[in-house]
Design a binder for these strands. Structure first.
Length: 464
RNA sequence: GGUGAUGUGGCAGAGCGGUUAUGCGUGAGCCUGCAAAGCUUAUCUAAAGGGGUUCGACUCCCCUCGUCACCUCCA
């Protein structure tokens, strides 16, 4: 598999020995997660599913930043403790994540539970002159790391001249960033240099090295983290280990809302919870992988609607296959299935091109649905096709509503009743049964000689 | 100002130096007691503009213009 690496700006072969280790920068838990977070998580979840579905073991670590000025300030505003606030939002994070059908990561380390690891890392950095103690805290000495700027392609001279930060006189250079900030206020921890709390960047260095080693396969996050967060992580980690840090830097594009940047000040932040309410998990997942992961996506109602329609086609396909019972052989689709599976995998193997993969996926679905409309889906076609469809659904993290054999039986009983009434031209009664069936969340698909049906995901936005 | 991207048909969005991307939309039709869904088919003579390389460029190179992101916390 090849993945675009932000550092070298090239597609790089994903090489690994026993497993693929991925560190994904998670969220700062001071508020509800939004659709932009969802995009990044979905991209990496889908990547992980693809690898695992192809029998490649994955170790995925995603951190929670649970100590940060934002959390402290927000907690103060709400008269709550910082830890109470972050605990609450970690919980809502998991609720969102589960509803989005995100597989749980191997581990979700929290910054506050790794203070010791960070202190050890900082100690070494101070030891080897990569960091120094000033009156406000411990700072990373950017001038000591000659490759600073290699990820974000920035030159330190440009950064210095363009620096808009209020100059902290105690720092040797305006580019130096905090590893440890002195503070007497809670939450704070003891350290060899004085009471305080860690800077933002050091947690990811400490936790990624702790869980994945000095040199792991993929480090991921949103594009907005490239500078300064990931740039600083590289500086810290490589100064600490004297080795190359992550092998591949993979960054997900941003989501804009109707062409505008999503921000608190514009007031257009869409929380995951809110979007889930209207559109459900499958539409969101389809939407989030509809374009290449590295490019931005614009959030509009029209695009969500488009993905809803595509979801319906998936559901139709699934049920046409699931309910197939014809015994005569009318078609041979084995080559279509084989080709679809191959092209699907090839698309994802080439820089995780989900957009291209989806086009293969929908091609297959359209063909199957076309055969179904002609009543050409036999039991054996279904047995061949279902595993392929289910494989793709698993990779894409899509979950169609499933039914038990009992449900299938009872639904067909209702449908047969309706058919009989229709034959007798008792349409009013037949429509009543149709309504009854609809109330179970089931839609009918009338073919020439047979009525099939599907259980649809209820989508609120559809009714409006 | 610096850096990095990017500019494809009504919209979304890929690939590729010469072949229909694909999906949505739109038109027509099939099915039907009605509806919904589904299906079939057609459709838009797409490549920001200008140069160049080439037998041939949407695809490579150069210039101009535009858009976006990052440069401060941010997925």
């Amino acid at each position: 598999m090849k993945i675009s690496d932000t550092l070298t700006n090239q597609k790089k072969e994903l090489e690994f020995s026993d497993k693929v280790r991925i560190y994904l920068c998670g969220v700062t838990v001071y508020d509800q997660s939004h659709i932009g977070h969802a995009r990044t998580i979905i991209v990496f979840d889908t990547l992980r599913r693809f690898l695992e579905a192809n029998n490649i073991p994955v170790e995925l670590i995603q951190n929670f930043t649970d100590v940060d000025d934002k959390i402290i300030n927000r907690a103060k505003e709400q008269g709550e403790s910082a830890s109470g606030l972050s605990t609450k939002y970690i919980q809502t994070y998991f609720e969102d994540s589960d509803r989005l059908n995100i597989k749980r990561a191997t581990n979700y380390p929290k910054a506050t539970e790794h203070i010791e690891d960070m202190i050890n890392l900082i100690k070494e950095l101070v030891n080897n002159e990569s960091a120094y103690v000033s009156k406000n805290g411990v700072y990373f000495r950017v001038s000591e790391f000659s490759e600073y700027g290699k990820l974000s392609k920035k030159k330190t001279e440009d950064l210095e001249s363009g620096s808009r930060i209020g100059i902290d006189e105690s720092k040797e250079s305006p580019l130096d960033f905090a590893l440890w900030k002195f503070s007497d206020a809670q939450p704070n921890w003891e350290s060899p240099w004085g009471k305080g709390r860690p800077g933002w960047h050091i947690e990811c260095s400490a936790m990624s090295i702790k869980y994945l080693g000095k040199n792991f396969e993929i480090h991921g996050g949103g594009r907005d983290l490239i500078f300064p967060h990931h740039e600083n992580e590289i500086a810290q980690s490589e100064s600490f280990t004297s080795e190359q840090f992550a092998k591949i830097w993979m960054h997900a594009g941003m989501i804009t809302i109707n062409g505008e940047k999503m921000s608190k000040s514009v007031g257009n932040v869409k929380s995951i919870n809110h979007v889930l309410e209207s559109w459900g998990p499958n539409v969101i997942r389809l939407f989030c992988i509809s374009g290449h992961y590295s490019k931005p996506i614009d959030y509009t109602e029209d695009l969500l609607k488009e993905n809803l329609i595509r979801l319906r086609q998936i559901e139709t396909c699934y049920y046409e296959l699931r309910l197939a019972d014809k015994t005569e052989e009318l078609e041979d689709i084995s080559s279509l299935l084989e080709e679809s599976r191959e092209k699907f995998d090839a698309a994802l193997n080439d820089d995780f091109n989900t957009s291209l993969g989806l086009s293969v996926f929908f091609n297959m679905i359209k063909t199957i649905n076309g055969l179904a409309a002609d009543e050409k889906i036999s039991k054996s076609i279904s047995e061949q096709a279902l595993p392929v469809l289910e494989y793709m659904l698993e990779v894409l993290g899509l979950k169609v509503q499933t039914v038990s054999d009992d449900e299938i039986k009872s639904t067909f009983e209702l449908i047969n009743k309706r058919e009989k009434l229709r034959d007798e031209k008792k349409f009013e009664e037949a429509d009543k049964i149709r309504d009854q069936i609809a109330s179970l969340g089931i839609s009918l698909i009338d073919h020439k000689n047979k009525t099939l049906w599907m259980k649809k995901e209820a989508i609120k936005a559809e009714k409006q």
